[in-house]
Nucleic acid binder design. Sequence first.
DNA 1: TAAGGGTGTGAAATCGCTTGCGCCCAACTC
DNA 2: GAGTTGGGCGCAAGCGATTTCACACCCTTA
Lengths: 344, 344
Amino acid sequence: MAKRASMSDVARVAGVSLTTASRALSGAGRVSAETRAKVIETAERLQFQPDMIARSFVTGRSFIVGVLAEHAHGRFSMPLIVGATNYLGRENIAAVTLDAHGTPRILNDYLKRLRSRRIDGLLVVGDDPNRASLVLSEDFAVPVVFASSSATPETDYVVAPDNRGAGQAAAEHLIDIGRRHIAHVTAAVHDAAVDARVTGFTEAMAAAGLPIAMGGGPLYGSYLQRWGIDAAERIIASGEPVDAIFAANDEIAIGLFATFHRHGIRVPDDIAIVGYDNRLAGVMRPDHPLSTFDPELATVGERAAQRLLSVIAGAGEPGINYVQPRFVEGRSTVGPTLSPYDVL
Amino acid sequence: MAKRASMSDVARVAGVSLTTASRALSGAGRVSAETRAKVIETAERLQFQPDMIARSFVTGRSFIVGVLAEHAHGRFSMPLIVGATNYLGRENIAAVTLDAHGTPRILNDYLKRLRSRRIDGLLVVGDDPNRASLVLSEDFAVPVVFASSSATPETDYVVAPDNRGAGQAAAEHLIDIGRRHIAHVTAAVHDAAVDARVTGFTEAMAAAGLPIAMGGGPLYGSYLQRWGIDAAERIIASGEPVDAIFAANDEIAIGLFATFHRHGIRVPDDIAIVGYDNRLAGVMRPDHPLSTFDPELATVGERAAQRLLSVIAGAGEPGINYVQPRFVEGRSTVGPTLSPYDVL
DNA sequence: TAAGGGTGTGAAATCGCTTGCGCCCAACTC
DNA sequence: GAGTTGGGCGCAAGCGATTTCACACCCTTA
């Protein structure tokens, strides 16, 4: 069984020095075209593969990055992590994935390990909580990119889904299909992602010269389906002529829909509903019952990883980089009347 | 700004040789307790962190494993990958995640890269297709563990969800709640995961001395909700006194439920339904409308990673290691009558 | 013809750690 | 008391690449 060929094997066989072989293969430095060709040919013949560990050892670049997630198994984090690590893999970068749930002491321990591996950079997946306690020491100042949904200082490198754009696009879609009495049923106030969608929605409504139904602003609640049910009841009870709703997520949207249907209010005929998340894709009937926005979280992860590699390479400016949501057109805004059996 | 302390720094400050420092810190080799204490104390004082790259360089162990997924973004793979990489991270092992969708040429290219990194082992996530083309050359024979749902040669190291056990538990649960005319609506025949669930279900029924409703065997179809609808229609049309159904996944279960409800057949009163997947957890109302089995895919990934590390360490025998599914009790088997509004 | 400049090549140092081998000395065996 | 054992420690050799410096050579140019 032949051992792996090292670069000095290549050099010896090609009849050049180790130095020349290295230069010929790396492309840097002055080597005659003739010599270079000879070395490359020899390397291929011997199936030479550079040893990345040796390379890391001498260059200081480990080709490993840390991925620090808040809740790795969460709905938000999972596609993001997979999107990121997958991109990194394609670029031949390894990842040490760590779940930061835990005490600062654990986080600190993790950072020690990452330093021990001489990681080239750090990708932080999730929202604020850990960011504050993420203190990189002087002698371990690697590039950090955040994949997150919340706002951050301008000095950070951030990639996030465009919640504001989604809110705006939702309003525009509902206006496009002729609705004029549009409400926004959203989750908790002072949640960065919620706020951004509210902002986008409000801007688009203002731009169209339309007031927001149900009191001029969004109805705040939670992300639970239960809240969608309650909100629908409240809208019905108000007697206001609401003809469209932008729901902060698909669970709320489903709650709204079920409640309207139960009261004999037709969707989308009487009230159109557009959600946000697209988490139900593939769960519900394949003919897209619900109009919604897919935040493309895997893309967010991928872009964040891409950006991290850029920063490591010394390129790119700090700031927030938004990933556009993908609109999924469904029957809740443009199709024939939905029944629960269409959603189930 | 202080540079990171190296082991020779520690040795110098502690007044011992590099050799002794190394031995004292690694715990191997003969060092007096006194000297060891002194070295360890010095290392801590200097905040010494061993350089894993240098260690890898000399030991040959990279502390990196490859994770080769079939479709990294798929429902099956995603939790598995996250479960695995997260466990690896906790054990301080980095992962190069690669998506194998592609030609054998690409796969081969990936293997070259992995070899180039001297990976310690390989975790293959997904089913058969790639396994055949996964040929490790002689000089790159690292341990391989498969995280998969299908059967494999006894010589492989495999971790998989216990589909057979799920089928068995499903039948037992339905029998437990007093049902005697139980059908099984499943997906495509000759799918390993489907077959395993069929086997478990059939065994449990036989053990209870019950015939399988609707012809003595499962009804084969697809994983789509549409098939659940069609199967329900067929069961209703048959006139057979079916009082319980084990569905191969939750989408089929939902299709069954909606169709029965439409026909005035009450669930679970008239027909109890148990599904498989638990993909709808958190999507539907929080009060668990559907009885189902959660395959605990993240755990499968975690166990597979754990097993890979064991194999790398030289321990463990080949064979399949099953992860037990978790039963999620819902109203479709034990609660009050469900209406679509409960599911939505 | 001598000085200067670019070009192709190689010798050797270096990165931080592990480990085989050998030395010294104390303790034990016969 | 001579020989044997073995514990404690250090010297030095790598591991496989990159990179600095020096050198030989050829071609200009004054």
